[in-house]
Each structure stands twice: as C-alpha cells, then as structure tokens.
Write a protein that binds this DNA or RNA. Structure first.
Length: 231
DNA sequence: ATATCGATTATCT
DNA sequence: GATAATCGATATG
C-alpha cells in the first residue's frame, strides 16, 4: 500500500478475532505496542463552538492477564455472573466494570467463546487527540515540555485514568466488539515493533499476588505503579 | 520517595 | 454488610 499525499502513512489495522482467541498471557504480551482507538464522533455539538470530537489513539504500554476460572484474582474466578458475562463470551469484546465507586476499568475478552479470560488495560502512551484526552481528564495542558511529559503520563497512566481519557463507560462500551474499525472503540496494529517487554506481579489485587502476569514496555514514561515495578 | 486514607457504588455473601 | 483489577490528596522521611 503506497502512501498518498494527505493520507497518514501509518495505517492502523484492526486486530482480528483469532488474535484474542488465545491464552490471556499470550494476548497480553502481544498487545504491547498495539494501539487503542476511539473513533471520531461525527457531528459533535453545533452550538457554542464546541469542536466535533476527533479520533483518539494511544499505544498500549502496560497490561495484565487474568486467567479465567482458575485465577483467584480474576473476576471470572467464581463463575459466570451478570457482571462478568463478557469474559465468558466470544473473544475480542470489551469488558468494562466499575470499581471503588469512582472508576471504570477496560478489559478485552480472550479465549474461545465459552472459556473465561481477559486482559486489563493499565497504561497507554497518547498519540492522537491529546488535547481531548486532557479535557476528558480535566487536566490543564500548559506549554512547557517538561510538564507535557508529566501530563502525558497523567492522562493515561493507570486503568481508571485511561478510561476517563478515552471516555470509556460501562453503559457505552461494555460488550462492544473491539475487532472492528467500524466500531466506536477498537484495537489496532500500526506496525510498531514492541521492545523491552518486562513481567512483574499484578497491581491492586489481594489473591495470587506473586504471579508475574503484568506486562510492561520498560522505559515508557506512561507505565503506572511504583517506580520499583516500572521496569 | 513511600505511606496512608477518604471517596463512592456495584456486586456478592 | 464487606469488599473491590483505583485515584488524588495529604502526611512524613
């Protein structure tokens, strides 16, 4: 595919369902370096100069694998319920849950239909639509480069933060298909080659705390958690 | 740099 | 009634 004037050279192609129909550990590792996309919304507000919403994209730099019914830390451990049903359904769909009365978290379902498993998105590196992410997060972007870097991390570093930046909610996104670029939220590959993958224990859990199921791109300024585990 | 704590609600026991 | 795959603010070394 040859580049044309006015067309971005880095095409983002959606990952297919087979990508997700595997062990969450494999999916987690291979998701590093891929891109989360929130499609632009047509229209926007006609009133009062509110700009139409632009596309949001960010590179995946930190994820955790949750292994299904055999993993005590996973929501699917106790079996299928109304809340976790997506984790038991077909692969490549969004499992969004509400936590601590404040935050949403985004997962993608893995394993074939009928088998539980998922990957939690923990941190992203913003690439397109940074200003809108800042608006969604309620943070001020000022011009200084040092701060830009910090704010950049502040936008999408942590599972609750990235959901706020991408306006991910349960009502809107739970159960949605993440393998179609026609959808509002999807996951794609722009050809980036991930380097420096490290494994650490997962964060914020009280069971199976020692299993190394957190995957990070070491060196990314956006990786969440204590510096000790930043890679 | 690390520790502790309050917020706030869906879900399950 | 307790807990939770978190965040932001505050306190302390």
């Amino acid at each position: 595919m040859s580049p044309r004037p006015g067309v971005p050279t880095k095409l983002i192609r959606p990952l297919n369902r087979a990508f997700f129909a595997r062990d969450p550990r494999r999916v987690a590792r291979e998701l590093l370096g891929k891109v989360l996309v929130r499609a632009a919304e047509p229209g926007g507000a006609q009133e009062s100069g509110t700009p139409g919403k632009t596309r949001l994209t960010a590179r995946i730099v930190e994820v955790e694998a949750y292994l299904g019914e055999r993993d005590p830390a996973a929501h699917s451990y106790a079996g299928r319920t109304a809340r976790n049903a997506v984790l038991f359904g077909p692969p490549g769909h969004a499992y969004v849950y509400f936590i601590y009365g404040n935050h949403y978290c985004l997962n993608v379902s893995c394993e074939p239909d009928g088998v539980a498993g998922g990957v939690l998105f923990r941190a992203l590196e913003p690439t397109e639509g940074i200003e809108e992410m800042a608006r969604n997060r309620g943070v001020e972007l000022d011009g200084k480069k040092e701060l830009q870097k910090k704010f950049c991390a502040q936008l999408t570093s942590g599972p609750g933060r990235l959901c706020e930046a991408f306006d991910v909610t349960r009502a809107r996104d739970n159960g949605g298909d993440l393998t179609s670029s026609a959808g509002s939220l999807w996951i794609g590959d722009d050809g980036y080659h991930a380097r420096g993958i490290r494994l650490t224990p997962r964060i914020g859990i009280t069971k199976a705390v020692d299993r190394p199921l957190r995957y990070i791109l070491s060196g990314s300024p956006c990786v969440s958690g204590p510096k000790k585990l930043a890679g």
